[in-house]
Design a protein around this nucleic acid. Sequence first.
DNA 1: AAGTCGGGGTA
DNA 2: TACCCAGACTT
Length: 362
Amino acid sequence: MPDPSFAQRVIAWQRSYGRHDLPWQGTRDPYAIWVSEIMLQQTQVTTVIPYYQRFMARFPDIVSLAGAQEDAVLALWSGLGYYARARNLHAAAQAVVATHGGRFPQTFDAILALPGIGRSTAAAIAVFAFGQRRAILDGNVKRILARCFGVSGWPGLPAVEKQLWSLAESLLPDSGIEAYTQGLMDLGATICTRNRPACEACPLQPICHADRHRLTISLPTPRPDKTLPQKHTMLLLLWHGSEILLEKRPVHGIWGGLWSLPEAERGVDARQFVRRRFGLETELLPALPRFSHTFTHFRLHILPQPLRVSAKATLPPGCGALWLERAEALGAALPAPVRKLLATHDEGVSRSQTPALPGSRT
DNA sequence: AAGTCGGGGTA
DNA sequence: TACCCAGACTT
């Protein structure tokens, strides 16, 4: 019997040791598979599962999603991050209803044309929903290929990524594409992990270049390190009784489309800012502990500043701001740090003896 | 080719 | 603390 190929090793391993009970498995419903693939972009399985369950319960099919308010979609995405994914998902659902009669497209190019779906995600949907022979290249596959075939260089570099795509395409099996694709994901998530990979349990160990040359921990080549820029801001908690003022953020930029707290530059007079911006008279309350929030490309140092609104003036219509009861606000599409702030504090008073602020170390 | 876009898991 | 994760999109 000839030495099993790369693909045959992955397929055989997947059937015995792979994951078969994830919430989005055991279906060929392209909608269910699509939603899972979008949520799983840059997000780990264990984080996605509860979000996925809630989302599918609320929007069980593409028509219900297409007919939803964007705010309702974003609210279910709150805390998951990369909110453009949710806006694109919503827009794509409406596009499918408008141009495909509500039926998810079945050709690779039509899938790829939908907003939020790139080459790898389109391939994953084509494989799992329609059994098409397509190559994926996510973080798991990049790591497996870089190690097994000794591809050095940071995979974010276009030249390296091109090489990995070429490898991925060349390794596809003639049959069993679903088990193969799922097997790569499962191998990367459970065996060929970034640190402490379980090489002794890997079906690829006999043919793995990195294992033979003791390169496993150094492949794939890590991203070149760069120091994150530091930014500072002040988030205003404007309390009127148990109501708080929320402001809708612009669609583009950080926390796009979410409901956040009014934001002022560090060091400005908060009362004056609020008077000019909203026409409100306020009383300054003691500042809350500052904390920091790290994004992909910068670190934000946040000073939470509560103020008590003495008289609730009428907000200009269409100004993008509104008053919400604290409980209502917690049901809105909030950025994670704002959610944590509102969950921990009300009217400027800590709800707990020891204020457990998000990353309260500065 | 480089920058933008979150949040959490993990060591 | 620092890195990575079922990446896509814009410039």
